[in-house]
């Protein structure tokens, strides 16, 4: 079982995570029917920017984050933003959004001018996460774990980051045992998805470049 300290850490992370919301004026634009390729590009860019802003707000609240060196804070966020966004998108596609919105967003992404070589693996990844039947607690903790990854480029004080990540990993591991007793491999599978996320991170720059060129 989770200790009382772990329980309160979990509730705190969940609460901060649930406050992460893209403003409605942006999501409303998604539902407007007519859109040119250029408007589509601008909307997806605006959503991504807003995504980063709410991610930073969530990150600021992670226990201990603000005690880290300022440049290390930026390096952590730069290193994890793409991965955290993919996780968040997976959650939105798999659960959070009303059904019609998800279809529209998928259509817009597929018509965005990005190559299918990038889009197909992305939707496959969303599907592979869906099969894990992750709870919102797991999404929130996994996102925090992703952000507080010590071995990102340019981190000077890896040890301090490790110290912040460890308790979150412990809670996540226990939670997996409690919520998926039928599947003892659940925690290992979640960590496996993190490796996949890293691949997306590496391809993201090329993807944006090809998108812009198109």
């Amino acid at each position: 079982d989770l200790t009382p300290e772990q329980q309160s850490l979990l509730h705190y992370i969940m609460d901060s995570y649930n406050r992460q919301c893209i403003p409605q004026y942006i999501t409303r634009k998604l539902l407007q029917e007519d859109f040119s390729a250029e408007e589509n590009f601008l909307l997806l860019t605006e959503m991504a920017t807003s995504h980063v802003q709410v991610l930073v707000e969530f990150t600021k609240k992670l226990p201990g984050f603000q005690t880290l060196d300022h440049e290390d804070q930026i390096a952590l966020l730069k290193g994890s933003a793409v991965e955290a966004m993919f996780l968040r998108s997976a959650e939105i596609f798999n659960r959070k959004m009303p059904h019609g919105h998800t279809d529209l967003l998928e259509e817009r992404i597929r018509n965005s001018g990005m190559s299918d070589d990038y889009i197909t693996p992305m939707f496959n990844f969303y599907k592979s996460l869906e099969e894990l039947k992750m709870t919102q607690e797991e999404y929130s903790l996994l996102t925090a774990v992703v952000i507080l990854t010590p071995d990102r480029q340019y981190i000077k004080d890896k040890e301090s980051v490790e110290k912040l990540q460890e308790p979150l990993l412990e809670v996540l591991q226990k939670l997996c045992q409690v919520q998926h007793p039928e599947n003892p491999q659940h925690f290992a599978r979640l960590l496996g998805r993190l490796t996949e996320l890293r691949t997306f991170n590496h391809h993201h720059a090329e993807m944006l470049m090809s998108w812009r060129v198109n």
């Binding site: 601008l42 920017t49 807003s50 980063v52 930073v56 707000e57 600021k60 804070q73 930026i74 966020l77």
Partner: peptide, 21 residues
């Protein structure tokens, strides 16, 4: 507009809490 900013700019501004500037 925000769409012209790079990732690092967005992060720095959001960390400082002055994104609207």
């Amino acid at each position: 507009p925000a769409s012209n900013l790079g990732l690092e700019d967005i992060i720095r501004k959001a960390l400082m809490g002055n994104f609207d500037d």
